[in-house]
Computed example of a mutant assay.
Amino acid sequence: MKEMRRMSDLSNLPELSSEYSLSQEQIKQFQEKGHLKLTGVASQEEVAVYRELIGEKVKELNYHDKPVEERDTYGKAFIQISNIWEKSAEIQRFVFARRFAKIAADLLGVDGVRIYHDQALFKEPGGGITPWHQDQIYWPVDTDNFVTMWMPLVPVSQDVGSMNFASGSHKYGYISKLAISDESQKTLGQYIEAKGLEVENYGALEAGDATWHYGWTLHSAPGNPTSTMREVMTIIYYADDAKVLEPDSNARKSDLKRWLPELSPGDLAASKLNPIVYKKGM
């Protein structure tokens, strides 16, 4: 009954369709550094509505059955629930939001973008660091035009902080096949130091602010020493003309099967899970 009521109230949810204007300076910063912070991408009121819906779904789908301190490094990093939009028509409205998608297209300098997938990343009280990594080592798609929006659904305090970005690291492309792990933290940390890359963190964020980073940008995140959950929603976008690559790792084979179902190398990366969410002129 509750679900039926909610389905009938979809029209009452914030549409998130109005445009967020970017300056040429912001676009240039993103393309040079590989990351950018934008304030007020969604309003406090808009975020509050979707935070409740996303939080309920994360609680329902949480797969962890051990306390934080008994998990491995990856497990300590966060509760990770992917493609929530498939499981909720309400959350789909958030993930498919035209406002967010247009920002992604503007930052990438392309006419249109598709969804790769979303992820709720909830870092629990006492949660550990997220080690250094590149997202795009997992993605079997032949474009560098990938961008991730990382939006807190609650205020993120200075004690927790937002993500650490290695500025300019995206320009080096595919640096390492290392998955998120203690080894990636060590090895990629050494790489950043050897290259003399500046590490930046935007610090405290308000709910509805967002950071954006390229798929190749090296990034990590601090642990959560506070008593409150760090609730974040991420959405990954890519240029709509990209094609599927031949997977060169087990991680990419797994992603091809899950996020690009029924597609083969050389196909347009446009499965039923990858709709166009923004197209110039539409």
Results as ranks from 00 to 15, higher is better:
65 D>N: 14
38 L>G: 10
104 A>S: 11
214 Y>N: 15
251 A>Q: 11
75 G>F: 02
4 M>E: 15
153 L>A: 00
173 G>D: 04
136 Q>P: 01
246 E>D: 10
239 A>V: 12
240 D>N: 14
180 I>V: 15
186 K>H: 12
197 L>P: 05
280 K>V: 06
60 E>R: 05
56 E>S: 12
152 P>T: 10
228 T>I: 14
202 Y>R: 04
232 V>T: 13
30 F>D: 03
156 V>R: 01
251 A>F: 02
167 S>A: 15
211 T>V: 13
37 K>S: 03
280 K>A: 14
183 E>F: 03
160 V>I: 13
133 H>M: 07
11 S>C: 09
233 M>W: 09
112 G>Q: 13
34 G>L: 03
3 E>Y: 10
146 F>A: 10
181 S>M: 09
276 I>S: 06
120 A>D: 07
245 L>F: 00
49 V>H: 04
114 R>C: 13
63 Y>N: 10
30 F>L: 06
248 D>R: 08
61 L>W: 08
218 L>W: 00
38 L>N: 05
82 S>Y: 10
184 S>Y: 06
149 M>L: 14
3 E>M: 06
203 G>V: 05
258 R>I: 14
253 K>W: 02
108 L>S: 02
82 S>T: 15
223 G>D: 05
10 L>E: 06
228 T>L: 13
125 P>D: 09
182 D>P: 04
139 W>N: 08
274 N>M: 11
153 L>V: 04
43 S>G: 13
30 F>S: 05
217 T>K: 01
53 L>Q: 06
17 S>W: 08
64 H>R: 12
159 D>W: 00
52 E>P: 00
163 M>K: 02
175 I>G: 00
243 K>P: 01
15 E>Q: 15
147 V>A: 11
64 H>F: 11
89 A>I: 05
158 Q>Y: 03
109 G>T: 10
172 Y>I: 01
210 A>H: 04
157 S>A: 09
38 L>Q: 03
266 G>M: 07
166 A>H: 02
97 A>G: 11
234 T>C: 13
209 D>I: 02
58 V>G: 04
3 E>G: 01
244 V>T: 08
282 M>C: 08
64 H>A: 11
79 I>Q: 09
166 A>D: 07
244 V>L: 10
40 G>W: 02
59 K>H: 11
36 L>Y: 01
102 K>L: 00
166 A>F: 06
89 A>S: 13
105 A>E: 08
241 D>Y: 12
137 I>D: 00
241 D>Q: 11
179 A>L: 15
26 Q>M: 04
275 P>Q: 10
278 Y>S: 06
241 D>E: 12
235 I>P: 00
22 L>E: 03
101 A>H: 12
259 W>F: 15
20 Y>C: 01
80 Q>H: 15
169 S>G: 06
110 V>I: 10
78 F>N: 14
63 Y>V: 13
28 K>V: 10
233 M>E: 14
131 P>V: 10
254 S>I: 07
182 D>Q: 13
208 G>I: 07
91 I>N: 00
248 D>M: 08
134 Q>W: 01
111 D>N: 14
157 S>T: 15
155 P>Y: 05
90 E>G: 08
130 T>F: 10
211 T>Q: 05
